[in-house]
């Protein structure tokens, strides 16, 4: 069955017909061509697909596209402001918070929300806050440093 949904993604409104079983992540990647959001697993455990939806960080592989009807979504492509990197993106670059870059979009989206919710996050709180996102390259060491640096810089959301 196909239904029509209306979503706002990175400030642009889209009205598309989707198969009801289409996952939100596949809608973003295949229908809208926003391939910055990645898929790393099928059990909602790796976090590579993390986006912002209506003010929450959500795993877009665990949402159906139809559930996003009427929602406002930000993906990694929409995080920078007119070409100016978001402080979290800048911190990941400055602190070598990424290697292969596959988990990075989801990690950055989760981290921006983490810092928005807890601007004074301690290392322990950052580590707890990122436990839904897997990285195999960095051992999280520099990711934690990056998130702390972004928090310190007073990262606006």
């Amino acid at each position: 069955m196909r239904v029509t949904i209306s979503v706002e993604v990175n400030g642009t409104k889209h009205e598309r017909e989707v198969e009801t079983r289409t996952l939100l992540v596949h809608f973003l990647r295949e229908d809208l061509g926003l391939t910055g959001t990645h898929v790393g697993c099928e059990t909602s455990l790796c976090g590579a697909c993390t986006i912002h939806m209506d003010g929450l960080a959500v795993k877009s592989c665990t949402q159906l596209a139809v559930q996003a009807d009427g929602a406002k979504i930000t993906t990694i492509e929409g995080l920078a402001d007119n070409g100016n990197l978001h402080p979290m993106q800048q911190a990941f670059w400055d602190e070598h918070g990424l290697q292969c870059g596959y988990c990075t979009p989801g990690m950055i989206m989760a981290a921006t929300k983490l810092v928005e919710d807890n601007p004074q996050a301690t290392e322990r709180e950052i580590r707890e806050g990122l436990k839904g996102n897997l990285c195999r390259c960095t051992g999280y060491h520099n990711i934690v440093k990056a998130v702390a640096a972004a928090a310190k810089a007073g990262a606006p959301s």
Binding site: T35, T75, I76, E77, A80, L85, Q89, F92, L98, G101
Partner: peptide, 10 residues
């Protein structure tokens, strides 16, 4: 390598 990877363009 990073500018593309942190903006979803990789």
């Amino acid at each position: 390598e990073d500018p593309a990877l942190i903006t979803g363009k990789g």
